[in-house]
Simulated assay, not measured.
Amino acid sequence: MAPTARCGPEPRRALRWVVGAARKHVRGKIGSTLRELRKASGKEAKAVARSAAMSASKLSRIETGKIAPTAMDVDRILTAIGVPDEVRAGIVETARREATEATAWRLYRRSGFHLHQDAIRAVEAETAVQRIFQPSCIPGLCQTPEYVRAILSTKGLTEQVLSQTIGARIQRQAVLFEPSKSFRYVITESVLRWRLLSPLAMAVQLDRLITLSRLPNVRIGVVPLSTHTAEPPSSSFVVFDNRLVIVEIPHAEVTTSEPRDVELYLDRFDRFERAALFGDAMREMAGRIRDEFFREQESAPE
């Protein structure tokens, strides 16, 4: 019989014991593992669910095995419980192997796009360094409300859900102003020129990008179209520290915490980062394109 783990002077020892037992005896039963870890921590389900940015009913369904959690779900739950980093990685990896790694966008529409934004915000809250390579649009944390609406309007959302999702994404942007966190973004020149909005709105969006690039913890680079690169830009991706990658493809979002996969995307990011312009050179390029949009707006017929 397993000893009863209580919230006492040695909660970490209880957590380690449960994790060890889970690895040996309940591989494939992620839900029950998470439930035992939560009980060992002494935390209530509602408190864990709130910290993990999910509903209490979803946490209950995960713990009872009624739904399979994604690797990101498991990572957020373990973080909310307070499981040490050295044991969290192994459980997340087990979840990654057992869960479906690709989540279709239609499933996010069904469960609520704004809730997905809350889930990403929870991951960002536990991330020290976020890296993004984006060949198709402005990174989400840098988008103006108008730009967010233009991006999400292709997802088939109702006006109510669209407004909720825009609000949730804007809320996420506050994390940019936390000096303890670092943001490294690389985009292509085509992102600056892609006309998702009116010329004036595009100029405002580029102005915001330039402003954010001056924050000491935000590093934004642009790969010029004239730059020779050994590989073409393809899908956008986000790397959270060196533990989690989210890749966006047309029909789905792919999540992986497999170390070899994470390393692959870190290497890919580094290659594009070396080809990018930063600092004043980036701001000069973005400023020229912004001014082109301003002039186009001014010359437009009334």
Rank of each mutant, 00 (worst) to 15 (best):
V26S: 09
V26M: 09
E296V: 03
V222E: 03
I187E: 00
L176F: 12
V175A: 01
S236C: 02
Y265K: 10
Q130T: 07
E178I: 02
L266M: 08
N242C: 10
A286Q: 08
T127N: 04
A122Y: 09
D291I: 13
G82S: 13
S234W: 02
V175T: 09
P179W: 12
G140S: 14
Q117D: 08
G65P: 03
V26C: 07
R109N: 08
S257T: 13
R219M: 13
S226Q: 04
A102H: 07
P199V: 13
E126Q: 00
S299R: 15
S32W: 05
V218K: 01
E44G: 06
R50E: 15
S57H: 11
L196T: 06
R109A: 07
E63A: 08
V129W: 05
Y108I: 14
A174T: 09
S32F: 02
P301K: 08
T211P: 02
S213G: 12
T158S: 15
I187L: 13
G28Y: 02
G167V: 04
T94S: 02
L197K: 04
L162S: 04
R260H: 07
S136G: 06
L176K: 10
S153C: 11
A40D: 08
L225Y: 10
T144S: 04
P179Q: 05
R288F: 01
R260L: 15
Y147F: 13
P3Q: 03
T4A: 03
E253Y: 00
M202F: 01
M285H: 11
M202W: 03
R219G: 00
V191C: 09
Q143W: 02
A40L: 01
T100A: 11
A286R: 12
A52S: 14
L197P: 13
K24D: 07
A119I: 00
R35H: 09
Q164A: 10
S226G: 02
E292Q: 07
Y108S: 00
V175P: 04
I30P: 00
K39D: 04
R260F: 03
T188E: 12
H25S: 12
L115D: 03
V204P: 06
V191H: 00
A80W: 01
L192M: 14
A71E: 11
G279A: 09
P135K: 08
K155R: 15
D280H: 10
S32N: 04
A150C: 10
P135D: 02
V161R: 15
Q143A: 02
R97C: 05
P11V: 10
Q205A: 15
I30R: 01
C7Q: 06
Y147P: 01
W17V: 14
G167R: 12
T144E: 11
E63V: 10
R208D: 14
L244D: 12
R38H: 07
R283E: 06
R169M: 11
R121L: 13
